[in-house]
């Protein structure tokens, strides 16, 4: 019986360290900032740097759970409708006399409930794809928002509520602090806990995860609930920034959010990616937007850039992942004619 040792130290590899998608995003981020600062002499100061994120961070809260959703191999296109519905509920209940703190809590409850409904539909009706489930709830959630407010606006929030979207603690915007806390929480959850490990496992091989005792339904439900909760966060910050809300707020957010996640290097077939990528993508695109504003380029150019980046990154990632797995063992009995 030969003694074989199995290594438990991972040798440091420069290749593995530097051949990461995230570095590309860091380069883009730096490049955007270099260009921006050459465009405006006022650009390079701490205030701009800390202040700019206020304008794009509201939807960034959605990017965090959406990364989980896409790593699971699912997709959620109802998030923007969820934002609209919970924002409308918050504003309406406040205008009907509910104290603002209670209205905020109600907003978060509603958004989480919407997320849970998505999760329940997906786990109870496994035959349905996530696309079709969230497509129908997308229509329903915004539909309910319209039922409540019709084409009116609601708002006139108390003075202190604007602090969420506009206030700062010292030089740091409040929204940036909250986002940082959330980002750390989600990063730790995804990369350092058993929960995150299971999410990756399910994205790679749902059936093997289930046979290994992962409670797949509970994980899907939990991720859906988290997605809902973050939609509530977005609703609060968005309403605070705008001062009022309408049923048509946040239209198209789902697309931007998904685009950020994919730009961040998360594989659309599930199971691969990190949270650092999407977060870097948010900031790169956010600052890019700011820079375009500096040179008076229409905001619509940004749409084109996001779209192209989205498709390019999918194509590049495909090549990358394909290369990595070309050496996988091919098995003699493949799936098509295996028998039970």
């Amino acid at each position: 019986m030969s003694e074989r040792r199995i290594e438990i130290d991972r040798p440091w590899s420069w290749r593995r360290f530097f051949l990461r998608w995230e570095w590309l995003l860091v380069l883009i981020f730096l490049g955007v900032n270099v260009v921006n600062s050459s465009l405006s002499e006022y650009y390079l100061n701490l205030d701009t740097f800390l202040g700019t994120p206020m304008s794009f961070l509201d939807k960034a809260f959605l990017v965090l759970p959406m990364t989980f959703v896409i790593i699971l191999g699912n997709i959620d296109i109802s998030v923007a409708s969820n934002v609209a519905l919970s924002a409308v509920v918050m504003a309406t209940s406040y205008n009907l006399g509910l104290p603002m703190p209670a209205a905020i809590i109600l907003c978060l409850l509603v958004s989480t409930a919407c997320g849970v409904v998505n999760g329940l539909l997906m786990t109870r009706f496994k035959e349905l794809s996530a696309v079709i489930v969230t497509l129908s709830t997308m229509i329903i959630y915004r539909g309910i928002a319209y039922m409540i407010l019709e084409n009116r606006a609601a708002g006139k929030f108390p003075e202190w509520f604007s602090f969420f979207g506009w206030g700062s603690v010292g030089p740091v915007p409040f929204i940036l602090i909250v986002f940082a806390v959330c980002a750390v929480f989600f990063s730790v959850l995804l990369h350092k806990t058993a929960f995150g490990r299971k999410v990756f496992g399910m994205g790679n091989n749902l059936m093997a995860s289930r046979y290994s005792g992962v409670r797949t339904d509970s994980i899907i439900l939990a991720v859906s609930a988290l997605t809902g909760l973050m939609a509530g966060f977005t609703a609060v910050f968005l309403s605070s920034r705008m001062g009022s809300t309408r049923p048509n707020v946040a239209v198209g957010y789902e697309l931007e959010v998904i685009a950020m996640v994919v730009l961040g290097g998360v594989s659309t077939s599930g199971g691969k990616g990190s949270l650092a990528g999407p977060i870097l993508a948010i900031f790169s695109v956010g600052f890019l937007n700011y820079g375009l504003g500096l040179v008076n380029v229409q905001a619509q150019i940004l749409l084109i850039i996001i779209g192209l980046l989205l498709i390019l990154s999918v194509l590049v990632l495909k090549v990358r992942f394909r290369g990595r797995h070309s050496h996988s063992a091919v098995q003699p009995d493949d799936v098509s004619i295996r028998r039970r």
Partner: peptide, 13 residues
């Protein structure tokens, strides 16, 4: 499980 590639292991892991 009977089908180790689909049910037993996460091959990429």
């Amino acid at each position: 499980p009977e089908d180790r590639l689909r049910q037993g292991l996460i091959l990429e892991w």
